[in-house]
Simulated scan of single mutants.
Amino acid sequence: MNYWIGVASKDHVALGVAGGFCQLCHGKSAPLNKMKAGDWLIYYAPKQSLKIKEPCQEFIALGQVLPGETYSFEMAPGFVPFRKNIDFLKKIQPVPLQAVAQFRLWQEYRSRLRFGHFQIPEELFDFIVSGMKRA
């Protein structure tokens, strides 16, 4: 089992949570193909919306990768991103980036947020999830 962080705006994450899927890195398939059934994904939202610069800076969604292949989905004419199905937990609370920034392991991973998708160790995953499950 592996643990991942995906980066997307809060409004885009909400679409995925409602639909039971994830899209990463502007719809590319490569990051999704790295994730296998049973892996866990935490979504971090740097902004509220892709088009507005209002910050969010929270870890906002948690889900487990479901069995099945990466698939394409036409969202709009000419825009066909790739998706992977995820079973998102419903009762979680957001965890501010500031709360995670204090954890010693985070210092090694914080610069990776700009990549949109990266693997983290179980210890860091457990730390973030412990805050999310306090709901």
Rank of each mutant, 00 (worst) to 15 (best):
G116H: 06
E74W: 00
P31A: 03
K133H: 06
I42D: 04
K34E: 09
F103R: 04
D126Q: 15
L41K: 08
L41E: 05
K84C: 03
I42P: 03
L97E: 09
F118M: 14
H26Q: 11
L105I: 15
H26A: 12
Q23N: 08
V17E: 08
K53A: 02
A76H: 11
P67A: 13
Q48N: 02
G78M: 00
P55Q: 00
R83P: 03
Y109L: 11
F115Y: 12
G68T: 06
E54T: 15
D87V: 15
C22F: 13
Y109W: 07
L24S: 11
A18S: 12
Y44F: 14
V129R: 07
V13Q: 10
F79R: 13
D126M: 15
Q23L: 08
I5W: 05
G131F: 06
F115D: 09
M132Q: 13
G38Y: 05
F79E: 02
L32F: 12
A61Q: 03
M35G: 01
L124H: 05
I42F: 07
Y44P: 10
G27E: 05
L105P: 05
A45I: 14
S49N: 08
A61N: 02
Q107R: 05
L66R: 13
V7W: 00
Q48E: 07
K53I: 01
K36Y: 09
V65P: 01
E54Y: 00
K133V: 00
Y71R: 04
I42L: 14
S111D: 09
S111F: 01
E122C: 07
V7S: 04
R110D: 08
K84N: 04
Q102R: 09
K51S: 12
